[in-house]
Amino acid sequence: MSGGPGERADAPWPAPEVHRLEQVMGTVVVIDLYTGGEPATAEEYRHLAQARAILHRADAVFSTWKPDSPVSRLRRGEIELGEAPPEVREVLELCAAARDASHGWFDPWAIPGGVDPTGYVKGWAAQRALDALLTSRVTGALVNAAGDIACHGSPAPGAPWRIGVADPASPGRLAAVVDVAGAIATSGTYERGAHLFDPRTGAPASRVASATVTGPELGLADALATALAVGGAEALELVESLDSYEAFMIGTDGAPTATARFPFAAGTGAGSPGVA
């Protein structure tokens, strides 16, 4: 496969100077750092340690799997919000903003068993980890939390980050390739069974096979991808109206739809023979 004229799609990409796999939050988080061909210094590794700590802290505070995590205790009514670590309130406020922005299609308060910010936390934590990585030497950085990806800079001068979107109907194949400037998140029932809830009925629901959102911030992108997976075409309209966020979804019938400015990589896109 090749890109259009002037594209360097087939150029070998430089390997990141730092490549770290972190087992956290129920998955593996990939951290890639590019420092312009120069070796990373102790400063970058200090920042890397901070980024890792952010991920583990988010896991410890927000895990609904750890019975003794502050969020688990909050869900059981054992503690008040005021007794939880301050980032719980911060995330719940961001969740409320995401709920409003998505017209209620993303709603952590509608999940059976009590408020569950899980749909926001992974992206939020990965974004914060990314922000912690940046030093003056870093020319490109990427944090990939099981397919929810935040990135900064670029992997090579003048080259965008190019991220594949998994084809929900065909494991091992891509449905699209996307130029990503900030964040990309994908949601779909194929990931974890019916883990999406329709806030309007309280029942597990999904109207699409796969829902992808790009934008400047991964927490909101993650929440909007969830909203899109639940709300389908209605939610796509909504994302269309949001500045800086774009959406791409694949229906249960396999039909792709996208907002007008979704950043498909040149020579790829919904239904492109080159990728599908």
């Binding site: 087939d10 397919g147 980050w161 594949g164 194949r173 891509l174």
Partner: peptide, 27 residues
């Protein structure tokens, strides 16, 4: 293992740095 499918996906497209929406294996 969680990365196997990412590697499989990336192998068919040598010019991408990651894959979005591929976490079912890790689940």
């Amino acid at each position: 293992i969680p990365l196997l499918e990412q590697q499989a996906l990336q192998a068919q497209s040598g010019s991408i740095q990651g894959v979005s929406g591929a976490s079912y294996t890790s689940a």
